[in-house]
Amino acid sequence: MAVILCMAPAYSQDDLMNLVDEPDDKGYASATFKGTRIILGHSVETKSKNELEFLISHRFGRINSGAHNLFGLDQANIRLGLEYGISENLNVGVGRSSYDKTFDGFLKYRIVQQSEKGFPFSVVLFNSIALKTTPKEEDDPTYELTDRLANTHQLLIAKKFSNNFSLQVMPVFVHKNRVESFDENNQVAIGVGGRIKLTKRLALNAEYYYRLDPPTDSPYKNSVAIGFDIETGGHVFQLHFTNSVMTVERSFITENRDDFFDGDIHFGFNISRTFSLGGKKEGDW
């Protein structure tokens, strides 16, 4: 009797399993989108600290421009860009687009990241400044340097609902210092973008920017884009169809000439390559 009493209970493996520690992670949502762009506009994804991304954004001409132009492939608009993670939450980027020969620079700051035990959304602040160098000064001397500038202030709010479905809403304010007579300097738009993962490495994305207060006689159209993300290791390929040939916010949100639903569709792609500079040291043990 005493012996039985004295026997410490031997634990089964399942009993032991109940004793192990649970990790104290907050369960941050990672990879809400594959790339730093949904299609045309930015996503809530940021480059990690010390990561450098080289991004080529390319749009061809209109598919309905006919066989003579090889369905738009003869025309090309390209932006070459570099983006760098100063910290996990702060990114800086520069780029140069062939459309309007525009230089742009931006700051992207993640205010909060969606997590299981914390905030239900990721919120990122995006600010950019763009300088168009068309027309040249000798062609139109009325253009001052300040006339060429435009600012974009944007809030990116995203939720990864599941592994396969993410949605982003992005209110945006664009200020252009000088505009055509029929246009207005300030424009507010609201964008919606989403991703559905078809396989582990293939996703279907869509994006739409709705201008809340376009000038009444504005010839410009809202921006529509639909495309696929294809991921291979350090690369992300984004192939898409859109009515925007432009690659900076000023142009594709507020100065979009083509009508998607009238068939003015452009084929385009983004290719990114990420390089890790420096980085965490490996502990040796």
Binding site: Y11, S12, M17, V20
Partner: peptide
């Protein structure tokens, strides 16, 4: 967790 009495380990 390791139970020495019966060698169970998880």
């Amino acid at each position: 967790v390791f139970d020495e009495s019966n060698g169970n380990i998880v």
